[in-house]
Design a protein around this nucleic acid. Sequence first.
DNA 1: CATCCGTGGAG
DNA 2: TCTCCAAGGAT
Length: 291
Amino acid sequence: MSDNPYSTAVLAWYETNARDLPWRRPEASAWSILVSEIMLQQTPVVRVLPAWRAWMERWPTPADLAREPSGEAVRMWNRLGYPRRALRLHACAVAVTEEYGGRVPDDHATLLSLPGIGAYTAAAVASFAFGQRHAILDTNVRRVLARAETGIQYPPKTQTKAETALAESLLPPTPSVAARWGVAVMELGALVCTARAPACADCPIAGQCAWRLAGKPAHEGPPRRGQTYAGTDRQVRGKLLAVLRDSVHPVSKDALDVVWDDGVQRERALDALVSDGLVDPLDDGRYALPG
DNA sequence: CATCCGTGGAG
DNA sequence: TCTCCAAGGAT
């Protein structure tokens, strides 16, 4: 096994162009890296930065977070989106504190067993925090590999086994190099090989990119349609939760009812929030963030 | 495996 | 305005 054909160029590019993100600094704890990865799930770096700083200042260790009620995590999460992540991060803190002596586990399988941590995040923490050799396959890497290797503009909508195999085949043999490679390809996708307007002129592997060499053929097949948001239960959930987040005290049912006209949809959304553990229905008929 | 789960910014 | 997309995970 030897390093893949891109690694030297990509690693050199990363050396010069990497962003100075706080969770990449040498002094960043494994826990702070884990927190950043949860926050970064489907959320842009620029929005995570201030949230991560405030979060780590308030709760520097998993034990600090674990002794808070989960509702405080939901409140602190503010408007980062997908608030179930806050709940799972809190559950993660509890598990790390109670089952692993307050230390973030360093093996992939154990990380994978923690709440809110899937294949990508487990690999990311094992690689970025502990320098291990794991394939990093996030939306950025998928796009880079789709273009450079497969020669298509966009990766498939859902991740395939072929993509996983490809990412693993490109992994440099030495763990420390592999870890560096993973974050470097991700950064290349985030800064150069972007979804809308890739800056091929600035790309260190443009000369070896199958998609570019093929003349950048446009995406084939049906348009990659994302779900619409307006009018969905997600929007209603967001409005309901915002009321609770912004109130120090439990709120009356009336205070929740005003945020959405359609009563059927509103009740469905509220029930779902309760079911998810994001909202706590009190005995007196009011509602609060979970205690 | 397809769908659901928030939010905000860029083009 | 409207569409697309941003370090995914759980079911």
